[in-house]
Design a protein around this nucleic acid. Structure first.
Lengths: 227, 227
DNA sequence: TGACATTAGTTGCGGAATGTTACTTATTCT
DNA sequence: AGAATAAGTAACATTCCGCAACTAATGTCA
């Protein structure tokens, strides 16, 4: 399936030997983070990958790969930690992992399947390491980029958003505090729609609409350094 | 000088064609962040670099390069954003930048020189981009790693530390607030030494000694998202 | 129909964290 | 001795945050 999809697009010719671009594509389903895994020619599970091409941006290649795979552009994408120590399934010397996010509506098709990030299938060592680093990469960027928002559809409830943050942070948050902080940041805007999940009061929908606000110049938090 | 130093060490044979490992080595002098720049064979300024070698860790190669260059091991090192779009001086297709830190005692020798990060000499485009990304990379990691501490010597005054944070954050901090937050985080330990800079009261010296403390599970800060 | 469960969303309080100002302490310079 | 300089502290007001309790809107089920 991967090969078929790649043949459908007209991208630069890629040659074996340079570096692989490995894609750790993430999505949130059912309150858990999932990673897209495909099948290699031999049937073993692998992360989607492509080869770097002369003169082409690595990021663009990763974006093309994500689009070919899912039919949707990645909602967010960043480069991870390039590595050469372990062996890539293809024997490539170098791997450049990209960590991407697609919204919850993207379904896996063909040989591709979403796997919970805590219980991935048996990947090759280098790919396994890259997948396990993905969450850390997302955490690293979530203070400066709207990572949590990209896990959601364009319109979402505040409970959805809180759940996304809890997913990324790995801990529970307090509802009232979360909403107060969110309001103070002018990051979301209510839209005139409500969603009912069946039980309980319907929730208002919001969209990501950051407004310029002079970043409160507050002190430093040392909370995270030193374990 | 670079070539001489590299010949002195017995590292794996590196062959042209794979990827360059470019080093953005940073250090703080006189309240400003500096980057180490060397001279190429042709005399033009370049970032120190080496070639990736089969089977060797990219990070280890970068660490070796830093040690060969300065005689000191890098106090901290992380990988930056791999790139292929622009042209490397050597014509390499791929570059993996590493952003490193050495303490203030490391002096440049031979063809190497420290340049303020705001006024770098005319580097090749790809290297210029990598160097300009360095500060952003450091900022990205400073909440999770002791980046600011690595810019300092093993013992330092609290004013030194505050200056390092101000350097990285690009804004002034309040002395009292900074010290309170620092005390609450159990990150430093006073040692029984004082340093006098000539005028003013001598400052007590501290060292980085993080103690396990249950990270206060506080709410999220949205300050930085959305510009 | 009416009590109950469930989820969304708000309010108010107390304690913790932070910004600000002013102060004390220790040293050098003149 | 007194001014200048920098380190370090104290006190107070303000803001932030965790918590608990509350209201609101819907579905469920006896």
């Amino acid at each position: 399936m991967l090969l078929i999809l790649r043949a459908m697009s007209s991208r630069p010719v890629r040659r074996r030997g340079a570096a692989t671009i490995d894609l750790v594509l993430c999505s949130a389903h059912g309150g858990r983070l999932h990673v897209l895994v495909v099948k290699s020619a031999g049937g073993t599970p692998v992360l989607p990958f492509t080869w770097s091409a002369e003169g082409e941006s690595l990021e663009q290649a990763a974006r093309d790969l994500a689009k070919d795979l899912t039919g949707h552009a990645a909602a967010w994408l960043t480069v991870g930690t390039a590595t050469a120590a372990r062996r890539h399934p293809t024997g490539a010397a170098l791997s450049v992992p990209f960590v991407g996010i697609v919204g919850p509506a993207v379904v896996a098709s063909g040989g591709a399947a979403w796997h919970p990030i805590e219980s991935l299938p048996a990947l090759a060592p280098r790919q396994k390491a890259m997948a396990e680093d993905a969450l850390e990469t997302l955490r690293l960027h979530m203070d400066a980029a709207p990572v949590a928002f990209r896990l959601l559809a364009a319109s979402f409830t505040l409970s959805d958003l809180q759940q996304a943050y809890e997913l990324l942070l790995g801990r529970r948050l307090h509802k009232a505090s979360f909403r107060r902080a969110l309001q103070a940041a002018y990051l979301v805007e209510p839209i005139d729609e409500w969603r009912s999940e069946g039980r309980g009061r319907p929730a208002q929908l919001f969209r990501y609409a950051p407004r310029k606000h002079r970043g409160g110049h507050r002190s430093v938090r040392f909370d995270l350094i030193g374990r």
